[in-house]
Design a protein around this nucleic acid. Structure first.
Lengths: 144, 144
DNA sequence: TTTAATTTTATCGCTTGCGATATAAATTTT
DNA sequence: AAAATTTATATCGCAAGCGATAAAATTAAA
């Protein structure tokens, strides 16, 4: 058995697992406001800055447009956003929050606190969070 | 704009992004030996301990059987593993490496080093890796 | 100004991931 | 032993992700 192939030595497996488990923790909260996790990410992008082209949203989330386009179409179907061709550049599709989408922000406001509570209740985030965030940022910038 | 809803303040988004980006880094290496990333995880589980029931593999990877079963079927189709009903317990399906599956281990042995090189080349892992691994383990055990 | 290259979005096909549910075997209860 | 419960897999449906590719609009080059 090669030591470097042991699952317990894999950083990637931990990231993969931690990501899935924390996304699962969001699930019941997000279902309450009718969002999936990736849709929640798109909403956060738009709450921060409305009326963005597809490409800007995709880049902000480190995703490809072939992931984001169908995602946005489903969100349009849910009445959360509108999509229309840009007037200056006819290639772009500008995504805007609908009234319903804007109203969702206040309903979502409690979610980060609830997650933080669920995670921090075992002394995870209090002291280790800043270092974790910094290391993940380094990792992301190294890989992107 | 609610501060806690800013994307840059989200631990989960970082984990999600870091996980996807590092999995993408594996992709060209794994394609060389004909594996997807989740298939690679299953192979690591079996290289470590052959002949396991579906459920043990699923639990080791923090996945559900409804994810693992189709995954294993595809791997059986690729000739990497065999699946047969357990003799002692007729509910279980025991998964075993084929000769082809066993041979893959030596081909995969270089992959962790190549990934480590790609990640560490910007001073990421050397000093911060142990703390990162520990924090992720804490996070995973808090959420699982 | 044509032509070529680039940019932006979208479509297709496939693998994951997972909630809900079904099925069969084993275990526990009555 | 018969019935109810639990356990182990599997099936179905849907939403991501992403490689490969196409189509349309814009920009750059000839």
């Amino acid at each position: 058995m090669q030591e470097q192939l042991k699952l317990d030595n894999q950083l990637c497996f931990r990231l993969y697992t931690a990501s899935r488990l924390i996304t699962q923790a969001y699930h019941p909260l997000l279902r309450g406001i009718g969002l999936t996790y990736p849709q929640y990410l798109v909403m956060m992008v738009l709450w921060e800055q409305d009326a963005q082209p597809v490409n800007d949203i995709a880049k902000r989330l480190f995703l490809e447009t072939n992931t984001v386009t169908p995602l946005l179409k489903r969100m349009e179907g849910e009445g959360l956003v509108s999509r229309e061709r840009g007037s200056s550049d006819g290639r772009q599709v500008i995504v805007r929050l609908t009234e319903k989408g804007r109203e969702l922000e206040s309903k979502a406001a409690c979610i980060p606190f609830e997650i933080a509570g669920a995670v921090a209740c075992r002394g995870i985030t209090e002291k280790s969070a800043p270092a974790l965030l910094r290391t993940l940022d380094d990792l992301i910038s190294a890989l992107s």
